[in-house]
Write a protein that binds this DNA or RNA. Structure first.
Length: 576
RNA sequence: UGGGGUGUCGCCAAGUGGUAAGGCACAAGGUUUUGAUCCUUGCAUGCGUUGGUUCGAAUCCAGCCACCCCAGCCA
């Protein structure tokens, strides 16, 4: 199948979901002039994780699928929590995932001037007022879930007065919290977001993009809808908790002059009809055995429960990347999970399947012995050195071949030998035969043990007539991997497993610290990997019969490579 | 107890009045020089629940139940 065939097939089988259905309808009705323009709008206040990946894939893939555009916009309206470091890592993560945003990176902060003008417009039309209530007072006036709120005493300030006060807020005449700009909507609304929400607050604080130009900052609710409108976004996708904000999103946009919105928008000079963006909500991605809460992740880093934001056990994009997850596997996973409005918890197994599926197709095979047991092939002379040619992949010929040196002394994994094998054991036993992967069938003639009775070495004879052919007159079922003792390279291997041993480490009344899986990291210091691995162009491998591994980009050195286990192979042998 | 949402197989998820897609997981076979991959087969007389409308309901209507979100000058 060619690339384009598979693309076509993927499109044909792209699962139906309520957002695609909505877009299809919009396209049919011509609502946005046939345009599809989405955006991914993170606040640069932390590292991206698997949950963000779903949103990224959704927004960017939809744009691709409909030949539309997808912007990257930093929603940077609260400088107290944000930094350039996060801006940079987010951009890096999105590129790594394989997506390109439309045009330049956008910042809500670059619309601050326009946002200010629109606020003045709302004041002029009597839709906004400057309020002197403190945060605490405002809370009291807001009412409760079941009781209506009370109007602010400043609600009927004159337009002239509001204009003057707002200008002075901007000019820096007042301290933080002295005043706020509020929309004049309805203090009795059953939707608390509509009870005269704050549009601007005073914050004398440096902003990572705008420096010290501003001391008043617009709120999310006020900024997001206008930013969408300015960028000509058609479909503004966000998560479920913003559902109650949608009426406010619409209120703000509908109470501004459409022509003035259009005038400052990216569509100002286009031939398209100017249509306001619409918000649509979908359920967040949740994974069992996983925590994505910002506070929790930070604590785990700060308390040393993990080794940093890019610890391979972390659900961050940086962590998954270091773990060896491929961008395609994460994209496929997000696609397979679907998009719906029902809150759900996806099984980690689905993510693992996506990783295996991608790596199985693309990762070159190699051999690495994790827990070495010395085997001497007595049939060979001391200086025996045979260069065996092995293909890098059982099906994908384009991955090429490599040579694997075979010598008299090799190592195999300790778990591949049992003196008294359990029922069904297919590996090497005392007196039994086994195939060395890609090489000969050997027979274990002698088991050497130390004083404590531990097996230290196996003496085996080689059936020279079994290279590339089946042995005559008998069946040898088992195949085990091996590495030349002298030609192999010493390596450290890190075996990673899920961080938590319970399904819902973030649940109510659950302390995640008590749910940690004590075996989430196992360090193996004496591993031996075949030499070809170090010369490979790939950084992801399948170490045959062990799992998928990748070079650890941070801790590997020239003399001592470090490998991270990305994921084990499926293992249907219950005796293991 | 106000408002907004959601309930389809163990886990995701299609379905939009015509008789329950698909994936993961699981199980059983087959192929295999990876106990991998791959292939075949099985896996909801049932769609939160109770009624109603209809020739016919997961889909329409009503009631009930469960769970989630909202009272930041966070996003």
């Amino acid at each position: 199948m060619t690339a384009s065939d598979s693309d076509t097939k993927q499109q044909a089988t792209a699962p139906s979901n309520f957002i695609r259905n909505m877009i299809n309808q919009d396209l049919e009705s011509g609502k946005h002039g046939g345009r599809v323009h989405t955006r991914f709008p993170p606040e640069p206040n932390g590292y991206l994780h698997i949950g963000h990946a779903k949103s990224i894939c959704l927004n960017f893939s939809l744009a691709q699928e409909y030949q539309g555009q997808c912007n990257l916009r930093f929603d940077d309206t609260n400088p107290a929590k944000e930094s350039q470091e996060f801006v940079d890592s987010i951009k890096d993560n999105i590129r790594w995932l394989g997506f390109s945003w439309s045009g330049e990176v956008r910042y809500s902060s670059s619309y601050f001037d326009a946002l200010y003008d629109f606020a003045v417009q709302l004041i002029n039309s009597g839709k906004a007022y400057v309020c002197s209530l403190s945060a605490e007072q405002a809370r009291e006036f807001r009412g409760t879930l079941t009781e209506p709120g009370k109007n602010s005493p400043d609600r009927d300030r004159t337009i002239a007065e509001n204009l003057d006060l707002f200008a002075r807020m901007k000019a820096g005449e007042f301290p933080d919290g002295a005043y706020s700009l509020r929309a004049k909507i309805d203090m009795a609304s059953p939707n608390i977001n509509m009870r005269d929400p704050v549009l601007y607050r005073i914050r004398h604080i440096h902003h990572h993009q705008t420096g010290d130009k501003w001391c008043i900052y617009p709120t999310y609710d006020y900024t997001h809808c206008i930013s969408d409108a300015i960028e000509g976004i058609t479909h503004s996708l966000c998560t479920l908790e913003f559902e109650d904000h949608r009426p406010l999103y619409d209120w703000i946009l509908h109470n501004l002059e459409l022509s003035s919105l259009r005038a400052v928008s990216d569509l100002a000079d286009s031939q398209y009809d100017y249509v306001l963006p619409e918000q649509t909500e979908f359920a967040k991605l949740k994974l069992n055995y996983t925590v994505v809460g910002k506070r929790t992740l930070r604590e785990m880093v700060e308390e040393g429960i993990v080794d940093g934001w890019d610890d391979p056990r972390m659900p961050t994009l940086a962590g998954m990347r270091r773990r060896g997850f491929t961008p395609a596997s994460i994209r496929n996973f997000c696609e397979s999970v679907g998009v719906a409005r029902a809150e759900s918890v996806v099984d980690l197994g689905m993510l693992e399947h996506a990783i295996r599926d991608d790596l199985d197709k693309h990762a070159p095979r190699a051999m690495c012995v994790l827990n070495p047991l010395k085997v001497t092939l007595t049939t060979f002379a001391e200086d025996h050195l045979e260069e065996l040619t092995m293909s890098n992949h059982p099906k994908e010929e384009s991955l090429g071949e490599r040579t694997v040196p075979l010598t008299r002394e090799i190592v195999i994994d300790r778990s591949d030998f049992e003196e008294v094998p359990p029922p069904g054991f297919k590996r090497l036993t005392a007196g039994g035969e086994v195939r060395l992967r890609g090489a000969y069938v050997i027979r274990c003639d002698e088991v050497i043990k130390d004083a404590s009775g531990e097996v230290t070495e196996l003496l085996c004879s080689v059936d020279l007539d079994t290279l590339g052919k089946k042995p005559e007159g008998r069946k040898v079922k088992g195949v085990i991997h091996w590495v030349s003792a002298s030609q192999g390279v010493a390596a450290q291997v890190r075996l990673y497993d899920r961080l938590f041993s319970v399904e819902k480490p973030e649940g109510k009344d659950v302390d995640y610290r008590e749910c940690l899986n004590p075996d989430s990291l196992q360090l193996l210091e004496n591993c031996v990997v075949e030499p070809a691995v170090l010369k490979s162009a790939s950084s992801n491998f399948q170490f045959e019969r062990e799992g998928y591994f990748c070079f650890d980009a941070v801790d590997s050195t020239a003399e001592r490579p470090v490998f991270n286990r990305t994921i084990t192979l499926r293992d249907s042998w219950s005796g293991n």
